Simulated assay, not measured.
Amino acid sequence: MKLFSGTINTLENSLKYSTLKQNVISQNIANVDTPNYKAKEVLKPSFSSELKSAMQANRTDSRHMEFSNSTQSKFPVVSKPSSLYNHNGNSVDIDKEMSELAENQIYYNALIDRLNGKFNTLKTVVTGGRH
Rank of each mutant, 00 (worst) to 15 (best):
residue 116 N to F: 05
residue 117 G to M: 11
residue 29 I to F: 04
residue 50 E to Q: 15
residue 72 Q to R: 09
residue 31 N to Q: 09
residue 91 S to Y: 02
residue 26 S to Q: 12
residue 9 N to P: 03
residue 48 S to D: 15
residue 80 K to F: 02
residue 40 K to T: 01
residue 19 T to W: 02
residue 103 E to A: 12
residue 9 N to A: 14
residue 2 K to Q: 14
residue 95 D to Y: 04
residue 81 P to G: 07
residue 17 Y to K: 04
residue 43 L to Q: 11
residue 68 S to R: 06
residue 76 P to C: 07
residue 24 V to G: 03
residue 110 A to M: 11
residue 126 V to G: 06
residue 78 V to Y: 05
residue 41 E to A: 00
residue 62 S to W: 06
residue 121 T to K: 12
residue 128 G to Y: 07
residue 94 I to E: 05
residue 57 A to D: 12
residue 99 S to I: 11
residue 74 K to C: 00
residue 16 K to L: 14
residue 82 S to Y: 00
residue 59 R to I: 03
residue 32 V to F: 10
residue 35 P to R: 11
residue 28 N to S: 04
residue 122 L to E: 10
residue 23 N to W: 04
residue 107 Y to F: 15
residue 121 T to N: 12
residue 101 L to I: 06
residue 39 A to D: 06
residue 18 S to E: 09
residue 65 M to T: 14
residue 38 K to T: 09
residue 63 R to D: 08
residue 40 K to F: 01
residue 34 T to I: 08
residue 118 K to P: 00
residue 79 S to K: 13
residue 66 E to R: 10
residue 109 N to Y: 08
residue 16 K to D: 15
residue 71 T to F: 10
residue 39 A to I: 05
residue 91 S to M: 02
residue 87 H to W: 09
residue 94 I to F: 07
residue 76 P to T: 07
residue 109 N to W: 01
residue 126 V to T: 06
residue 72 Q to A: 12
residue 11 L to R: 06
residue 92 V to N: 02
residue 25 I to H: 03
residue 106 I to E: 06
residue 41 E to Y: 00
residue 100 E to M: 09
residue 70 S to P: 04
residue 39 A to T: 03
residue 119 F to H: 04
residue 81 P to A: 11
residue 61 D to Q: 01
residue 94 I to S: 05
residue 131 H to E: 14
residue 100 E to Y: 06
residue 125 V to L: 10
residue 86 N to A: 12
residue 41 E to W: 01
residue 65 M to C: 02
residue 85 Y to T: 13
residue 62 S to D: 09
residue 93 D to M: 00
residue 125 V to E: 13
residue 80 K to P: 00
residue 60 T to G: 14
residue 129 G to V: 09
residue 114 R to M: 11
residue 22 Q to P: 07
residue 80 K to H: 02
residue 82 S to L: 03
residue 43 L to K: 09
residue 5 S to Y: 02
residue 48 S to M: 15
residue 68 S to F: 04
residue 74 K to S: 10
residue 122 L to F: 08
residue 24 V to D: 03
residue 130 R to W: 07
residue 60 T to R: 12
residue 74 K to W: 07
residue 87 H to V: 11
residue 109 N to H: 10
residue 17 Y to R: 07
residue 63 R to A: 10
residue 126 V to R: 05
residue 42 V to N: 00
residue 77 V to Y: 04
residue 105 Q to H: 10
residue 50 E to A: 09
residue 65 M to A: 10
residue 53 S to T: 11
residue 64 H to E: 15
residue 63 R to E: 08
residue 109 N to S: 13
residue 99 S to T: 15
residue 109 N to E: 12
residue 88 N to G: 06
residue 49 S to N: 11
residue 122 L to W: 00
residue 83 S to M: 12
residue 82 S to E: 00
residue 24 V to A: 00
residue 74 K to Q: 13
residue 116 N to K: 13
residue 95 D to M: 00
residue 4 F to K: 06
residue 54 A to G: 11
residue 9 N to Q: 12
residue 39 A to G: 02
residue 47 F to L: 13
residue 122 L to R: 03
residue 30 A to E: 01
residue 101 L to F: 15
residue 13 N to I: 00
residue 4 F to R: 02
residue 9 N to L: 11
residue 15 L to S: 09
residue 48 S to F: 14
residue 25 I to Q: 01
residue 70 S to V: 03
residue 61 D to A: 06
residue 58 N to P: 02
residue 46 S to P: 02
residue 73 S to I: 02
residue 32 V to M: 13
residue 5 S to D: 06
residue 73 S to P: 08
residue 17 Y to D: 03
residue 86 N to S: 13
residue 53 S to R: 15
residue 126 V to Q: 06
residue 41 E to K: 15
residue 30 A to H: 01
